[in-house]
């Protein structure tokens, strides 16, 4: 289990991370979400031992890694958002260099490198120069590198940034594979639908503070005050519109072609009444249902709320 307690990192007068508290369960896939400059990368760099915290603690299995940084190199694998590769090395040599740098015995390296390259689907490129790899392949190579010390915790900062849809899908498949290996994976990403698919929990961070944390569904329920309902129909849409306007629980009605969306703060009984009434008034309903929450909308809403609260406090 990872426990971050009151983590602070200041750069001059700016608090990049401002009293962050967070708990990440062992074996979970945790998504770190936040706008640019929210403090995600800074937090990840502190966890990876690339930056010293100004205050606070990070516990991995009850050991404070801020005070015992040597543990980081054993337990954590990190893939930064921007990284370079040694172009004049072959893929196998590149991996061998990092295996050497982790002091992995020479006789164990060959199998380890082969296995890791197989995991990231780069076995066929083992003798190619790193220079000749595509961006997606380099990204996967860097992922293989971050696994070379067999870390319990894998920190991936924007692993899919700059990749085309195909490469992103490949990266997603590999991460799903890694999920099976019982590693704790922490991912930051701007591509929220992807996090939605992969993460068991997310933490929304803004201005260095945690705004909300938990399973995506819990956050959705907490974050959205109203239910979003859609009705698809073939004809008599104007009648449906009149019915909806009769209910005080219905608001923010949006009309589309053959479709009406609205926000609703009532219970299922009232919803069934609306549907019955629509059918009685000859509205040819094709489908009627509740839309799944949109993580992206929720993220924007939560970060905007946090900003508004901050402005109010300052005033």
């Amino acid at each position: 289990m990872i426990k971050i307690e009151n983590l602070v990192k200041t750069f001059g007068k700016i608090n990049a991370v401002d009293g962050l508290n967070l708990t990440i369960e062992k074996g979970s896939v945790f998504g770190f979400v936040g706008p640019n400059g929210a403090g995600k990368t800074t937090t990840m760099k502190i966890m990876a031992g690339l930056m010293r915290a100004s205050l606070g603690s990070i516990f991995i299995d009850d050991v404070d890694i801020v005070k015992n940084p040597s543990i980081i190199k054993e337990k954590i694998g990190y893939m930064p958002d921007f990284f370079g590769v040694y172009d004049n090395l072959k893929v196998s040599e590149y991996m061998d260099f990092y295996a050497d740098a982790y002091y992995i015995p020479t006789n164990e390296r060959k199998d380890l490198i082969n296995n890791l390259l197989e995991t990231v689907n780069l076995s066929q490129k083992i003798d190619s120069y790193v220079d000749s790899l595509s961006r997606g392949m380099k990204q996967r190579l860097c992922l293989a590198r971050s696994l070379i010390n067999d870390p319990d915790i894998l920190i991936l900062d924007e692993p899919a940034s700059g990749l085309d849809p195909m490469a992103r899908a490949e990266m997603k498949d590999i991460l799903k594979q890694l999920k099976q290996l019982d590693k704790t994976i922490i991912i930051s990403s701007h591509i929220l639908p992807e996090l939605h698919q992969m993460c068991s929990e997310i933490g929304i961070i803004d201005h260095g503070r945690l705004i909300d944390c938990g399973s995506i569904n819990d956050i959705m329920i907490r974050g959205s005050k109203y239910r979003n309902i859609y009705v698809k129909y073939l004809n008599n849409g104007e009648k449906l519109l009149l019915i909806l306007k009769e209910y005080k629980e219905v608001f923010e009605i949006k009309e589309g072609i053959g479709e009406i969306n609205f926000s609703f703060n009532g219970d299922d009984l009232i919803l069934s009444q609306i549907l019955t009434q629509a059918v009685k008034k000859d509205v040819s309903v094709v489908s009627f249902g509740e839309k799944e929450g949109d993580l992206e909308d929720l993220f924007i809403k939560l970060t905007q709320d946090a900003q508004t609260e901050e402005t109010e406090v300052k005033q």
Partner: peptide, 12 residues
């Protein structure tokens, strides 16, 4: 070259 951080991550 953005390889420096990767080197610092290792046990060296």
């Amino acid at each position: 070259r953005q390889t420096f951080d990767l080197m610092l991550l290792t046990k060296m």
